[in-house]
Simulated scan of single mutants.
Amino acid sequence: MPSTQPLRTMMVDTQVRPSDVTKFPIIAAMLDVPREAFVPAAAQPVAYMDAPVPFADGREMPDARVFAKILDALDIDAADQVLIVGGGLGYSTAVMARMADSVVMVEDQAQRVADAEAALAAQGVMNAAVIDAPLAEGAPKAGPFDVILIEGGVEDVPEALTDQLGEGGRMAAIFAKGTLGEVRVGHRIDGRLSWRYAFNAGAPVLPGFSRAKSFML
């Protein structure tokens, strides 16, 4: 199979750098990880397009621009312990594993977990683990984490998940807002989690992250 390095370079030069993402660890990791190895076979031809990559169940992998801007906002350190909720087939895990000390990824479908594990192993990612569990539960036994990425849309973030973020930690999610959405980054300081707006982006709401419906009698 021909090398996709030219496609990765073009992706970084046309989607990532123009979005004011210039930190070396992000650029290096996104140049290094073959994006097409972590998408469904049918989506491989569009893996490097400036658009989210769809999965069969309505989920999607964020486009490179959105993902890179989230990484930039999370300010990942080489000593960080990372949790990724809804990491799909493992692309974000492979990228963040090159930037952090370790990564735990949670997925809620056994086949997707198996496919992600195989893809990560094929790429030699040794400092990441994939857990099969409900997304909103996270991985409490592996925490606390320095960084948590919810890779998809949310209306609410369960306290059971936010409790897994350690003091000084950062957490990012795409909050649904009508037909649009916005990325927010939460910082835990003195035990409290405070969310701040980062930039606009949209994504389908993940299972377990919808706001509870209220009924009027």
Results as ranks from 00 to 15, higher is better:
M96I: 07
A73V: 04
D115R: 14
D156L: 12
F67S: 02
A64K: 02
M49L: 15
E107N: 15
D32Q: 08
V130N: 12
D77P: 03
P140F: 08
R65V: 06
E137T: 13
Q81K: 15
M61L: 12
A160M: 12
D146W: 03
A118Y: 10
P144C: 07
E117T: 13
I148S: 04
V157C: 08
R35T: 04
G124E: 02
I76A: 03
D50P: 06
F67H: 03
A118E: 11
D101P: 00
L135K: 11
R112I: 14
A139Q: 11
A121M: 08
A73D: 01
A110L: 14
A119P: 10
I131E: 14
A114D: 12
A79Q: 12
D163T: 12
L161A: 08
L165I: 12
P45R: 06
R59W: 12
I148R: 05
M126G: 06
Q111D: 15
A78S: 12
G138W: 05
A73S: 15
D108E: 13
A122T: 05
P54C: 13
A119V: 04
A79K: 08
L89Y: 13
F67K: 00
E159C: 10
A78H: 12
D77F: 03
L165M: 14
L83E: 10
D163F: 07
P45L: 15
F55M: 15
L83G: 06
A51I: 05
E117Y: 04
I70C: 01
Q123W: 02
A118T: 10
G87Y: 02
A68N: 00
L149K: 01
V157K: 07
R98D: 01
P54H: 10
V85G: 09
V33Q: 06
A119Q: 04
L165A: 09
P45M: 14
V113G: 05
A79D: 14
D101Y: 08
V53R: 06
V113Y: 04
Y48M: 14
A41Q: 08
P134I: 03
I148A: 06
G87W: 03
A142H: 05
I150L: 11
M49G: 13
E155D: 12
D57Q: 11
L71V: 00
V39T: 10
S102T: 09
I150Q: 09
S102Y: 07
V85I: 13
A97C: 04
S92K: 01
V33R: 01
V85S: 05
V66Y: 01
Q109K: 13
Y48C: 13
P54I: 08
A129M: 11
A129K: 10
P40F: 05
A37M: 06
D75Q: 05
A97Y: 03
L149S: 02
P62Q: 11
A37Y: 10
P52W: 07
A68G: 00
D50N: 11
